[in-house]
Amino acid sequence: MDRREFCVSGAVAVAGIMAAHAQPTPVPAWRSGSAPPDALYKVIFDVRFAASQAFGLAAASVGRVTTGIRGDVTSLWLNDLQRQWALSRAGIAGMTTMHSFFCLQQLAKDHWMRAIVCAEHRQQGAAADAQRVARIVGIQAAGRAPTLDPQLVSWVIAA
């Protein structure tokens, strides 16, 4: 199983391991990607990658608040997300490297938030999930499909 599949099916695997009876978790409508969420707080992009920059620009053009990083998420966390998530568990989306996403995903756990989509561009079939992220951000509604870069991941983290 690859990392992308793991993101999506981890819960299923655990259920198997524990012979558990899955509990239905309420899913906000926007998670299906049908409508952009109002609760999406911010879109993160990595200024070092053209595809990511384009994603950030596209997000800004549809009115999303964006933040550019350079791999490391320390400042984004300390100066922004830590305070924000203490107030409300607002979702974030992004197109970043896997290690930036990994860190944000770990930090989100402090608020029992999780990755609800994670498309590793280098994996086969990533395009569909990357488009789902774009839809959630609202970019696709503006008619722009995201460019993929094998070093990057498109993702959404939410409660």
Binding site: G71, M98, H99, R122
Partner: peptide
């Protein structure tokens, strides 16, 4: 800091982290 996590970055000099 969290910069240590660059250990897991996929880069030209670390293509298969």
């Amino acid at each position: 800091s969290l910069r240590a996590f660059s250990i897991g970055a996929r880069t030209p000099w670390s293509p298969t982290p």
